[in-house]
């Protein structure tokens, strides 16, 4: 290994390394320090020690309600998206003419900007003049609910809306399905396996690393839900769509409580980290890596 190559390796990687230090590592340390202060950016910060954390954990019911709302949303929408994307991917993987057109149709919503998504869905959910209640009315003769204005329907509305982006996970699953050798299925069919055993014993285990990836990324994204809540409901009705990120944003950039918002950021970070570690541990029981040893 020449020292020249050594030097050039670091040189070529340096944009990312410098960026990592400036935009990730130092800010993380700074964030910890800021979280121990009271700071509105106009006057110098005052040291409050663990005051923000105490306030957050014991004196602010909105912290817990927003964390619970965010968790509930993730718990319902992520598995739902996982199952639907798996079914869709299997349909899209079948050798049927014109299937690539459908693939494009399902992927299209994922390129639409988030603000536009939120606006369009707000209009779709409109009680009296929205398309969803129109469909319910004309197909089933039901009078639809006040989706975004009713505390009981706000969560189903957000979950329902999340399915519109199922295409992203579907495309990833589809690529995973296409990498499973056809010979596995042929061999199993020769042994007389039907569709269910094929799914249970070949498709799911072979696809498990991809499903795991979708689970982790879906979970991290769901726990940071923001744009839809800010644009569509502003957290209402009755704070029932006050997602954690929206509360964090309001603290930081509307009320300029930088210290408190930083403490909130660390709470969410710790929460995401713990959930991710739990899922990682749990994954050892069901994720199968080809050539890997199962513990």
């Amino acid at each position: 290994m020449s020292t020249r190559e050594e030097r050039e390796g670091w040189l070529y990687a340096s944009p990312w390394i410098i960026g990592l230090i400036i935009f990730t590592l130092l800010p993380m340390i700074a964030s910890l320090v800021i979280s121990l202060t009271d700071w509105n950016l106009l006057t110098p910060p005052t040291w409050v020690g663990l005051g923000n954390y105490k306030q957050m954990l014991f004196g602010d019911p909105l912290v817990w309600s927003s964390l619970w709302i965010t968790t509930k949303y993730a718990l319902i929408s992520v598995p739902l998206n996982l199952v639907v994307s798996l079914c869709l991917a299997m349909l899209l993987n079948s050798k049927v003419r014109g299937v690539s057109v459908w693939r494009a149709v399902y992927y299209l919503p994922t390129v639409v900007p988030g603000v536009a998504v939120a606006l369009v869905w707000q209009w779709l959910f409109n009680t009296d003049f929205g398309a969803i209640n129109a469909v319910l009315h004309s197909l089933f003769g039901i009078k639809g609910p006040n989706w975004l204005l009713d505390t009981r329907w706000i969560m189903p509305s957000f979950v329902f809306m999340s399915l519109w982006h199922v295409g992203a996970a579907t495309v990833i699953n589809l690529a995973g399905l296409q990498s499973i050798p056809e010979s596995y299925y042929e061999a199993a069919r020769l042994d007389g396996a039907g569709p269910w055993p094929l799914l249970r014993h070949i498709t799911v285990p072979m696809l498990s690393p991809v499903l795991f990836f979708n689970l982790i990324m879906g979970m991290i994204a769901a726990l940071q839900t923001f744009t839809q809540a800010l644009v569509m409901t502003g957290g209402g009705p009755d704070n029932k769509s006050l997602f954690f990120m929206l509360y964090l944003y309001s603290n930081a950039f509307q009320w300029f409580k930088m210290g408190y918002a930083s403490a909130l950021a660390w709470l969410l970070f710790a929460y995401i980290l713990i959930l991710t570690l739990i899922v990682f541990r749990w994954s050892k029981a069901w994720v199968y890596y080809e050539g890997g040893v199962r513990s």
Partner: peptide, 24 residues
């Protein structure tokens, strides 16, 4: 080792660095 760091940062939630970067 740095490549592992790179893969890890892909999962890092951006919200933790948001406030200090704004201050910067």
């Amino acid at each position: 080792a740095l490549f592992v760091v790179l893969l890890t940062t892909m999962m890092l939630p951006q919200h933790v660095t948001m406030i200090p970067v704004f201050v910067l």
